[in-house]
């Protein structure tokens, strides 16, 4: 009991005092996850929108694959990326294994299907409603697409937040491809896993608290956005 309350006190002290190690880990976590989400958004939004609006060969395959990949276990993604980037693998020469870049790659693979699938659902619903009106007004594919992205912006933003939620919470993939190297590839989730197993509860708890606050903020933001959008556009 004492251990735990001591750990809590130490954790609060670290967070409040902007502990250097802690800040470094949080910084890297955000850097990796935000980069991954940014890249996944750039790929996922147009991909999801295109599969919703246009009929092209391979569309069904893409949809099935995206849906299947939505629930991909992070350790499996980590393993695959590890194999691809390991020295014997096809991309071994790039020397990316155990770098933040490798972690970003793994998270992009985890997050892109989520953003693309949610985007497709949002866009399909909107398109069903808008299609005839758009065609009646003489809007071409590009104008229709941009109009849909704009009108669906609130829902799309929550899709992106869902992607960020997944990226910042997962541990399996970044652990395998990053290696949890101190001052190089250690992020919040891998640090927590390590510190708990080593018995340093203070750092683990401090990181855990930050992660908790972060995910609460993300979920809260998603809720508020959806709520505001519903009030405005019924």
């Amino acid at each position: 009991m004492n251990d735990i309350s001591d750990a809590f006190a130490a954790a609060f002290a670290m967070v409040a005092g902007f502990d250097k190690d802690l800040a470094e880990i949080v910084g890297l976590s955000l850097e990796v996850s935000l980069s991954a989400v940014f890249i996944a958004t750039v790929i996922g939004l147009p991909l999801g929108a295109a599969t919703a609006l246009f009929r092209f060969p391979g569309r069904k395959v893409i949809i099935v694959v995206l849906n299947a990949f939505m629930g991909l276990p992070p350790v499996v993604v980590g393993l695959i990326v590890y194999l691809l980037l390991s020295r014997a693998g096809p991309f071994g020469v790039l020397g990316l294994l155990f770098t933040p870049t490798a972690m970003i790659i793994a998270q992009v693979i985890l997050v892109t299907p989520i953003i693309a699938s949610l985007t497709r659902q949002v866009m399909e619903d909107l398109w069903r409603e808008y299609e005839e009106q758009m065609r009646s007004l003489g809007a071409g594919p590009v104008r229709s697409l941009t109009a849909l992205l704009w009108d669906g912006r609130f829902s799309l933003f929550t899709a992106i937040l869902a992607g960020f939620g997944r990226a910042s919470a997962e541990v399996g993939a970044v652990m395998i491809v990053g290696g949890n190297i101190d001052h190089a590839t250690r992020v919040m989730t891998t640090a927590i896993a390590l510190e708990v197993s080593r018995g340093d509860l203070a750092l683990a708890l401090g990181l855990g608290l930050i992660l908790l606050v972060l995910s609460t903020c993300v979920n809260g933001a998603a809720f508020l956005i959806r709520d505001a959008a519903q009030k405005r556009h019924a």
Binding site: E129, Y130, E132, Q133, L137, G138, D151, H233
Partner: peptide
């Protein structure tokens, strides 16, 4: 002809704007 016509549908379609 496309840009010279308009239609009002039985169920009005309102953009979210």
């Amino acid at each position: 002809s496309v840009t010279a016509q308009a239609m009002v549908f039985q169920r009005p379609v309102m953009l979210r704007r």
